[in-house]
Amino acid sequence: MLCDGCWNVRANRLAEEEGTTATPLPEPDPDDTEWIEAPVCEQCGAAIRVWPTEYDRWVALATRPLPAKDVPEHHRWRLVETPAGCVAVRLRGARLLPDEPVYPHHQMLCVPEEDAPRRAN
């Protein structure tokens, strides 16, 4: 068992390595009836899903899974149901079938708006 200080150092190092530096979503007020907008990436404007990890950090993932063959290993994540709710788990060294669905880290898909090709309306 690690003390709180050692745990935070370890978790912060892992967060830097895995890119789990997203800001957690605020807890909604149970009395608030306003619509809650889905979060969007500040760089590219795309919709993202922010999930807690198993080590108390937060990660921004794509909103839909992709086949494992289309996602580099270091960007592969899976959502796992726990008694406390869903958490994101990075798939390290897992041998996956090419068509198995994985959630890519949003960083893999992020193209800043100024670098994105202009869309014709």
Rank of each mutant, 00 (worst) to 15 (best):
V80H: 14
E73P: 15
A88D: 02
E81K: 12
E17T: 13
N12A: 03
L79F: 02
C41W: 03
H105W: 08
D56P: 00
P98N: 03
W58V: 03
R95K: 09
A47M: 12
D29Q: 13
P117H: 11
L97N: 15
Q43S: 13
W51E: 05
R119C: 15
W35K: 14
A68Q: 07
E16P: 06
A68I: 06
G93V: 04
V111E: 12
T20Q: 06
Q107W: 10
H105T: 07
R119P: 15
Y103E: 00
W58A: 08
H105L: 12
E114P: 05
T53N: 01
T82P: 03
P65K: 04
T21D: 15
P24T: 01
V40K: 06
P67F: 01
V89D: 00
V71Y: 01
P65Y: 04
H106S: 03
P83Q: 01
A88P: 02
P98M: 01
H74D: 07
H106V: 05
D115V: 15
A116G: 08
P28D: 06
T63C: 13
E81P: 14
I36F: 12
A88K: 00
E100H: 06
R119S: 15
G85E: 06
R90D: 04
L97D: 10
V71R: 01
R76W: 05
P24E: 00
E114N: 09
L96N: 02
P30H: 09
I36E: 10
A22T: 01
V59G: 04
R119G: 12
P83Y: 00
Q107P: 10
L61N: 02
R95M: 12
